[in-house]
Deep mutational scan, measured.
Amino acid sequence: MDETGKELVLALYDYQEKSPREVTMKKGDILTLLNSTNKDWWKVEVKITVNGKTYERQGAVPAAYVKKL
C-alpha cells in the first residue's frame, strides 16, 4: 500500500497499450491498483513524468502482467 492506503501492484512485464482504455507500463513499474474485480484486466493508475511534470493516467492492464505488493 502507498501512503494514502491504496493498494500497489508491480509490473512483471512490459505492456504497450492497444486502445485508449489501456495504459502502457514497463517491467518494474509500481502502479496504483484502482479495481481488480475483473479477473483478466485490472484498472490501474500510472504516474508519467514528462519534462519534469508528473501526470496521472488511469487505464486497464492485463492482470497476469502485474502482481499485488
Results as ranks from 00 to 15, higher is better:
residue 1 M to T: 13
residue 1 M to S: 12
residue 1 M to Q: 13
residue 2 D to M: 14
residue 2 D to A: 14
residue 2 D to I: 14
residue 2 D to S: 13
residue 3 E to V: 13
residue 3 E to A: 13
residue 3 E to R: 12
residue 4 T to P: 14
residue 5 G to P: 14
residue 6 K to T: 11
residue 6 K to G: 10
residue 7 E to I: 14
residue 7 E to W: 12
residue 7 E to F: 11
residue 7 E to Q: 14
residue 8 L to C: 15
residue 8 L to V: 08
residue 8 L to M: 11
residue 8 L to W: 14
residue 8 L to H: 08
residue 9 V to N: 01
residue 9 V to T: 01
residue 9 V to S: 01
residue 11 A to F: 04
residue 11 A to W: 04
residue 11 A to K: 01
residue 11 A to N: 02
residue 11 A to P: 02
residue 12 L to G: 00
residue 13 Y to D: 06
residue 13 Y to S: 07
residue 14 D to Y: 04
residue 15 Y to T: 00
residue 16 Q to A: 12
residue 16 Q to T: 14
residue 17 E to H: 08
residue 17 E to I: 06
residue 18 K to V: 08
residue 18 K to W: 04
residue 18 K to I: 05
residue 18 K to L: 08
residue 19 S to Y: 04
residue 19 S to H: 09
residue 19 S to N: 11
residue 20 P to I: 09
residue 20 P to S: 11
residue 21 R to T: 13
residue 21 R to N: 15
residue 22 E to P: 04
residue 22 E to T: 07
residue 24 T to C: 05
residue 24 T to V: 03
residue 24 T to K: 03
residue 24 T to E: 01
residue 25 M to K: 00
residue 25 M to N: 01
residue 27 K to L: 04
residue 27 K to R: 11
residue 27 K to V: 06
residue 28 G to E: 01
residue 29 D to G: 02
residue 29 D to A: 06
residue 29 D to T: 06
residue 30 I to L: 07
residue 30 I to A: 00
residue 31 L to Q: 00
residue 31 L to K: 01
residue 32 T to G: 06
residue 32 T to Q: 08
residue 32 T to K: 12
residue 33 L to C: 05
residue 33 L to Q: 00
residue 34 L to R: 03
residue 35 N to I: 07
residue 36 S to K: 08
residue 36 S to E: 15
residue 37 T to K: 10
residue 37 T to R: 09
residue 37 T to C: 14
residue 37 T to I: 10
residue 37 T to N: 12
residue 37 T to P: 03
residue 37 T to M: 10
residue 38 N to C: 11
residue 38 N to W: 05
residue 38 N to K: 06
residue 38 N to S: 09
residue 40 D to L: 13
residue 41 W to T: 04
residue 41 W to Q: 01
residue 41 W to V: 02
residue 42 W to G: 00
residue 43 K to V: 15
residue 43 K to I: 15
residue 43 K to H: 15
residue 43 K to F: 15
residue 44 V to D: 00
residue 45 E to Q: 12
residue 45 E to P: 00
residue 45 E to C: 14
residue 45 E to W: 06
residue 45 E to I: 13
residue 45 E to V: 12
residue 46 V to D: 00
residue 46 V to Q: 11
residue 47 K to R: 12
residue 47 K to P: 05
residue 48 I to S: 06
residue 48 I to C: 13
residue 48 I to V: 13
residue 49 T to I: 12
residue 50 V to M: 11
residue 50 V to S: 09
residue 50 V to Q: 09
residue 50 V to N: 08
residue 50 V to D: 08
residue 51 N to K: 08
residue 51 N to I: 02
residue 51 N to Q: 09
residue 51 N to A: 10
residue 52 G to R: 02
residue 52 G to K: 04
residue 53 K to C: 13
residue 54 T to I: 11
residue 55 Y to C: 10
residue 55 Y to N: 05
residue 55 Y to Q: 08
residue 55 Y to L: 10
residue 55 Y to R: 07
residue 55 Y to E: 08
residue 55 Y to W: 09
residue 56 E to W: 15
residue 56 E to Y: 15
residue 56 E to D: 11
residue 57 R to M: 07
residue 57 R to I: 08
residue 57 R to Y: 07
residue 57 R to C: 08
residue 57 R to L: 08
residue 58 Q to C: 11
residue 58 Q to G: 03
residue 59 G to W: 07
residue 59 G to Q: 01
residue 60 A to Q: 15
residue 61 V to K: 00
residue 61 V to M: 03
residue 61 V to A: 02
residue 62 P to Y: 06
residue 62 P to C: 07
residue 63 A to V: 05
residue 64 A to K: 14
residue 64 A to S: 13
residue 64 A to H: 12
residue 64 A to I: 10
residue 64 A to R: 14
residue 65 Y to P: 01
residue 66 V to S: 00
residue 66 V to K: 00
residue 66 V to E: 01
residue 69 L to K: 03
